[in-house]
Design a protein around this nucleic acid. Sequence first.
DNA 1: GAAGAATGTTGGACTTGATTCAAATTTGTC
DNA 2: GACAAATTTGAATCAAGTCCAACATTCTTC
Lengths: 196, 196
Amino acid sequence: MANETGMGLRERKKLATWQAIRDAALRLIDRRDFDAVSLDEIAEAAGVSRTTLFNYFASKEAIVLDPAPQDPQLWRSLMDARPERETLWASLQAVHLGYVSTFSDRLVLQKRLKTVSPTLAASTREHAARFKRELRDWIADRAPSGSEVYAELAVNTAGAAMATAYTLWSPDDGFDRLMELARTCFEQAGRGFTAP
Amino acid sequence: MANETGMGLRERKKLATWQAIRDAALRLIDRRDFDAVSLDEIAEAAGVSRTTLFNYFASKEAIVLDPAPQDPQLWRSLMDARPERETLWASLQAVHLGYVSTFSDRLVLQKRLKTVSPTLAASTREHAARFKRELRDWIADRAPSGSEVYAELAVNTAGAAMATAYTLWSPDDGFDRLMELARTCFEQAGRGFTAP
DNA sequence: GAAGAATGTTGGACTTGATTCAAATTTGTC
DNA sequence: GACAAATTTGAATCAAGTCCAACATTCTTC
């Protein structure tokens, strides 16, 4: 029995549960420390059993860091939106900037959490890696064979540019400042480091 | 009562225990999977209690990944060895190449383990970050104030270059091939990505 | 070299994240 | 309403990591 959203009850409930768990977790962790909040508490607060929680998230960190179910599709459309004839480097910049924009809302909270909890900071890197994997696959089609090193390096360097901007950025600066920093970094990395 | 090594008995025993634990762990993990080897087994094989094991290593991953006690000092001397007037980029390349050379022996085993065990692969990144932190501190002195963005970006890009080489490298290729790849990556990243 | 201080080691109890599984519940379909 | 498929659940279990008080070893001092 489908409704206006085009989803069955089952699917809608699933999304609601996902949201309930994430919301409960963020609310609890916002007050106390990440490590001080137990899975039982989160499950309790989300009105779900601990077992179910693991049906939705692979780990405690994932509850905070996992992209929303819609996000990956969004990323792909970001990549597909890039014109064929655009420079690899220009595409990479555009995709990265678009990428962080997809969760500009969560970004401030997440960065704050990460500065406090090393556990979270560590597994964030794992997440960046997941995005990078998608990027790589996407690049693989565009890159002429024989340029694997160049393509891989470009992807990683773009990641470094973005990471640099993110590191230097403070949540208090506001989101636009992050974009500005990112653009600066991409420009500089694009120029290279050999010349003074 | 000091001996020829200049270390007291206490210090010597400590190093021996550290080595015993790492050796036991690597030996066990070399046969079975990382996750299939329990801390109890490692402690047992190293002839030490589980509690003691945690006196030496902060986590299970650390047993495999921690740098040898001497290593950090080695890194610092690598950095200090760079001539004052060398380009930042050239210094970064030299330090990175020297860095991986310090554990060229472990490198093959470690990379093999990492391809099998995601757990290990994840926490490797955390280790790279530690080295990067040291680098940053070192750079901070050299970089003229006002160029924080540039310095941070250079460090991260150098890391990206090294990571790219490492990713594309296969343990079967031998260590020299890794060096070769690294040089190529540094050269390309140094040139930048704006020009075709 | 004996006594005492400092440093390490140990076992055991405990917390918590994560896995497994069969029974119970809910949703979709005819 | 009845049956099949997908979800949820509690309970049992495992392993990583922490804490702590008792014990052992090394270092220092006289």
